[in-house]
């Protein structure tokens, strides 16, 4: 019997949902295992009953997001957070709650619509229990494929904890940080992307979010500082994709 899946979109660029469509020929395999009950990007058909798997992309940034998320959680057995916005908050989480008004004014001028109730971008796990997390901006479609097939077989998808450096070294790519002094967040960012940016000679911007458990932000900070980068830029860099970058005492002083 096929499982029922629904895909919900909160605040984001839509790239994560596109990852699903970009499964291409593997989409056939997924459709062997799942019926798609709800996915606005591909169909206006709506089935608002129970789901086996709810895939949620985007961060919680509006009241509507929160409603959609809470309903998705209530109706699903397994909730999968897809993409860095859903898992870590994404770039929209750069704005802190206290700066929201200013940010709105900057974009909408004085005429901020009254009905516009927004929050700072927030990982969905701050509101509901999340069963599976697939970060990435955009997430790797193979990660999504592996997770969906795992779930259909009744097995918990792998939760990796290796940094971007692992695949970068395996590829024997020139280390941009060590050899060229280019800022790179590879050592503290969750791998799985095959170090695609470093392969192109660009430093990692941390789009997959920080390592899940042990992540040494202060040391990365010192490294970037030694490259002559300003504190403000480093802070932005570290926070670009993740609201979850842990703030220990050292950093609190740093960010004052």
């Amino acid at each position: 019997m096929k499982l029922k899946m629904a895909i919900f979109e909160l605040t984001g660029c839509g790239g994560c949902e596109l990852t699903f469509i970009m499964l291409n020929e593997k989409l056939e395999d997924i459709l062997e295992l799942y019926d798609i009950a709800h996915f606005k990007m591909i169909s206006s058909k709506e089935d608002l009953h129970k789901y086996d798997v709810a895939v949620v992309a985007g961060s919680v940034s509006t009241e509507r997001d929160l409603k959609v998320l809470e309903s998705a959680r209530k109706k699903s057995r397994i909730l999968l957070a897809l993409g860095t916005c859903a898992v870590h908050g994404g770039p929209q989480s750069l704005i802190l709650d206290e700066d929201l008004e200013g940010a709105l004014a900057e974009i909408y001028g004085k005429k901020v619509p009254k009905e516009m109730k927004i929050f700072a971008g927030t990982p969905i796990s701050e509101y509901v229990k999340v069963d599976v997390e697939i970060p990435g901006c955009p997430p790797e479609s193979n990660d999504l494929f592996q997770a969906l097939v795992d779930l259909a077989h009744g097995v918990v998808p792998y939760k990796w904890d290796y940094p971007v450096c692992l695949e970068c070294k395996i590829n024997e790519t020139e280390c941009v940080l060590v050899k060229r002094g280019i800022p790179c967040l590879g050592p503290i960012t969750l791998g799985g992307c095959n170090a695609v940016c470093i392969n192109l000679g660009i430093g990692c911007i941390g789009c997959r979010g920080p390592l899940p458990e042990d992540v040494n932000i202060p040391s990365e900070y010192e490294i970037l500082k030694s490259l002559g980068i300003s504190e403000k830029t480093i802070k932005r860099k570290l926070r670009m994709f993740s609201k979850r970058v842990s703030l220990n005492d050292h950093e609190k002083n740093l960010y004052k």
Binding site: P163, C165, L166, I170, G186, P187, L211, N216, P218, E222
Partner: peptide, 13 residues
């Protein structure tokens, strides 16, 4: 170990 990033580069190479 406070300075170490725990990235594992040293072991991979």
């Amino acid at each position: 170990s406070e300075r170490c990033l725990g990235c594992g580069n040293c072991t991979l190479v």
